[in-house]
Design a protein around this nucleic acid. Structure first.
Length: 177
DNA sequence: AGGCTCATGACTC
DNA sequence: GAGTCATGAGCCT
């Protein structure tokens, strides 16, 4: 069976996010502005979903369950709280990226780490720059807290969703800088 | 404080 | 292989 992804929307006070699910779990999240300007999302949802129903309703139920976990997790984290996460599917990503993201999941809400600290934590103290690259390649922003990673000079660094998001998310967790 | 350079690892084409 | 970085440390004004 091919790697079918289905997209389900999540409405939040910050807009509508789009969650992507594979057979193994949550595989990606799109920012609210990402569906404007990208064509075909709505039809993609319905066709993929109905195909899945035909295929296996059991799997659909599973994904619905994951989705409700994702939904509450997203809303809580957007509000600056921590939350239980659905299973994450990082199939196809490199070992290096996965270890970076695993490290980021360990950062508690309200705390930050530097790119260098992440590099040390995964046993490659000199791969600081590559850590930045892995952050940018993170398919699951917000839930995998790439926004809690700052540069060593306590400055912002960058952010895939735009620096305004990063500032805002940090502020909601009570982080000042 | 701000700016410049450079070593550096992973990734992409 | 060369080019691209969401870095960091060092060394200048």
């Amino acid at each position: 069976m091919k790697n079918k992804f289905i997209e389900l929307p999540i409405s939040t006070p910050d807009g509508i996010f789009l969650a992507h699910y594979s057979e193994k779990g949550l595989a990606g999240i799109d920012w609210p502005n990402a569906n404007r300007g990208r064509r075909g999302n709505e039809s993609q949802i319905s066709s993929a979903s109905s195909e899945l129903v035909r295929d296996s309703s059991r799997r659909l139920l599973q994904i619905k369950k994951w989705h409700s976990t994702t939904e509450t997790a997203l809303k809580k984290i957007l509000a600056g709280k921590k939350s239980k996460l659905p299973p994450l599917d990082w199939t196809g990503k490199t070992e290096f990226q996965k270890s970076v993201w695993r490290q980021m999941l360990k950062i508690p809400a309200g705390r930050t780490k530097s790119y260098g600290e992440i590099a040390v934590a995964i046993g490659r103290p000199k791969a600081v720059r590559a850590v930045g690259g892995a952050c940018g390649a993170n398919p699951i922003p917000v839930l995998v807290p790439c926004h809690r990673v700052l540069a060593a000079n306590k400055k912002l660094g960058g952010f895939s969703g735009g620096l305004d998001w990063k500032r805002s998310l940090l502020a909601r967790e009570g982080i000042k800088f």
